[in-house]
Design a protein around this nucleic acid. Structure first.
Length: 564
RNA sequence: CGGGGUGUAGCGCAGCCAGGUAGCGCACCUGAAUGGGGUUCAGGUGGUCGGAGGUUCGAAUCCUCUCACCCCGACCA
């Protein structure tokens, strides 16, 4: 490709829109262009990279036994009602109507479609196992698209679905995918960390995410040197024991003006973890009383899962008072008609200080279950950096990260709802066991840049670089520079090497800066200076050093360099 | 959805407070010189000032409404 003909221009100045490295560089390199919030065109350079990413993904999916296919983006809304996900996904679904007023949705994901498809094509255990995948555009009306391609509303996704006869089969499919994903990210030049995750709106029981650690990421992960790693939404910590002697009798104390745990612990000169605090939420319209040890915060996602509700928010003061509770001194003791959810930290010790449900009064020596009852007892605590690891007890670390892949064991969540059954060897009808495995090539494109750049521009890993070699002829007229660079261009291209030729009449500075910005792995400078020595200059984008290579050895040397 | 911010040429911005018919840098075009990390000089092209309505002799500027985009939060495979 000749730069003079390439569609897409580099830009010197930073676009004001962008504030993450990948977004800025994609715009500056002329690779993408925004059409609406979270909606982008991929220009030729970006498209080449995307195709290479997709090729790697295809190779790994095929290798693992996947069969590629294609499913519609346009889906009847009915399908979503049938699976019951219309509610959970409702907000994020792009919906429209056809000319007959039939409601449709633009597919945000394809579990429903594929399950329906498999239902009609699988009857017997002989038809299984099966791994089907597709790479296509998906649509999600995200509340807040951000960071360019990292969170878009229209984006590219590869999703593979596995169908097995039993759990053992699912485990095998899952393991194949996990391995394939490791290979994909390695080949794309992004180090990922595998973390336990919440399966969210997709459903199912077990899921892992592949995360890239980067400060510009929007997800927080919690991890430990022992290998424990989880999305902060899901992470656990060892809450420890708070030994405080045998159970004592309840004792009311006057606590004027002490509404927070901070105040209370200060006044009584006790650590926060010897108190119990009350927090109030409105879950699907109903007030919920949450009890948790005073030093721990509530993880709202865990709470949501414990309650199995779709809508959750904190209650305001009026709502708390209306329920007959006393903000600042609320107590789970003697509560009636209100659902009480407790974190398991309430069982981590004895003789806690808690509210008395009387203004300016607290109670000492509160013990569960002697003094109060709960409807749900679960882990609903937020694990934080510095907390003890649930596996080894060492201190947990935390990092920002971007989710690049997510693999789920779905089980029979969809197949039961949509009636996708098969006849097993004994002639009995059973729901198919399903798994699903997603990876976003367009997000991966951004992640690759996020991981591989410097202040001058992108540094493409060679497997996904839009071109292999960037030819930089300087002072093209009045010398043999032009002739030699054209010859190199032709010969390299014939060898199947992808070459970008900067055939513009620009100054060396402009060409070098653009070469750095575009980040092609190998740069070859052809100039009168080096031609005097019958040589060319070869430089790796990732290194500082320039190598002087005799003209006749140039192609051999380039081929060598491309191998590593 | 709540909070904050921004819309003026392809990109980055000034002009708005104190209304008088739009400007700077980059990019782009022409010419000349230059020649190894965004070279210089000269000349030029390009703008419904996000949109609608209003006030006014006159609106980028003042008023009202509206739309879009960005950031933080909520939310989110």
């Amino acid at each position: 490709m000749r730069i003079s003909a390439l569609f897409g221009k580099t830009q010197r100045e930073l676009p004001a829109e962008a504030d993450t490295a990948s977004h800025q560089l994609l715009l500056r390199a002329g690779m993408i262009r925004q059409t609406a919030a979270g909606v982008y065109s991929y220009l030729p350079l970006a498209w080449r990279v995307l195709q290479k990413i997709e090729r790697i993904i295809r190779e790994e999916m095929d290798e693992a036994g996947g069969q590629e296919m294609r499913m519609p983006a346009l889906q009847p809304l009915e399908l979503w009602q049938e699976s019951g996900r219309h509610g959970v996904m409702g907000e994020i679904l792009f919906t429209l109507s056809d000319r007959r007023d039939r409601p449709l949705a633009l597919g945000p994901t394809h579990e429903e479609v594929i399950t329906e498809l498999v239902r009609h094509n699988v009857q017997s255990y002989r038809d299984l196992p099966l791994m089907l995948y597709q790479i296509q555009t998906k649509f999600r009306d995200e509340p807040r698209p951000r960071a360019g391609l990292v969170r878009a509303r229209e984006f590219i996704m590869k999703d593979l679905y596995s169908f097995d006869v039993d759990e053992e089969g699912l485990d095998q499919s899952y393991e194949k995918m996990r391995q394939a994903y490791q290979n994909i990210f390695r080949r794309c030049g992004v180090p990922t960390i595998l973390v336990e995750a919440d399966s969210g709106a997709i459903g199912g029981k077990e899921s892992y995410e592949f995360m890239l650690i980067t400060d510009s990421g929007e997800d927080e992960i919690i991890h430990c040197s022992c290998g424990y790693a989880a999305n902060a939404e899901k992470a656990k910590s060892d809450k420890g024991r708070v030994e405080n002697g045998d159970l004592l009798a309840i004792e009311e104390i006057s606590t004027p003006g002490m509404a927070s745990i901070e105040d209370l612990a200060g006044m009584l000169k006790i650590p926060h973890n010897r108190t119990l605090k009350a927090v109030f939420y409105i879950a699907d319209g109903k007030l919920v009383f949450v009890v948790i040890r005073g030093d721990i915060e509530v993880n709202e996602l865990k709470l949501k899962n414990a309650l199995n509700c779709t809508d959750l928010r904190m209650a305001n003061q009026e709502e708390v008072i209306e329920a007959g509770l006393v903000p600042g001194a609320a107590s789970p003791m003697g509560i009636n008609g209100i659902k009480v959810v407790a974190d398991d930290s309430i069982t981590s010790g004895t003789n806690f200080v808690a509210g008395a449900n009387k203004p300016e009064t607290h109670v000492k020596n509160v013990n569960y279950p002697r003094d109060f009852k709960v409807n749900v007892l679960a882990d609903i605590a937020e694990a934080r950096e510095g907390d003890a690891c649930p596996r080894c007890g060492e201190k947990l670390s935390s990092n920002q990260s971007v989710e690049l892949g997510h693999i789920f064991k779905l089980g029979t969540f969809y197949t039961e709802k949509l009636g996708a059954n098969f006849i097993d060897q004994r002639g009995e009808s059973c729901p198919i066991i399903m798994g699903c495995y997603g990876i976003g090539p367009s997000r991966l494109l951004a992640a690759i840049i996020e991981q591989n750049h410097n202040d001058k521009g992108i540094i493409w890993p060679s497997m996904v670089a839009p071109y292999h070699v960037h030819l930089c002829p300087l002072y093209r007229d009045g010398s043999e520079v032009s002739e030699i660079s054209e010859k190199l261009y032709t010969e390299l291209t014939k060898l199947g090497i992808e070459v970008l030729l900067d055939d513009r009449d620009e100054s060396p500075g402009v060409k070098f800066n653009d070469a750095d910005l575009l980040g092609i792995p190998l740069r070859v400078t052809i100039s009168p200076r080096s031609l005097e020595k019958s040589s060319l200059e070869v430089k790796r984008r990732s290194e500082k050093e320039v190598e002087l290579v005799p003209q006749e050895e140039a192609i051999t040397r380039l081929k060598e360099l491309l191998k590593d």
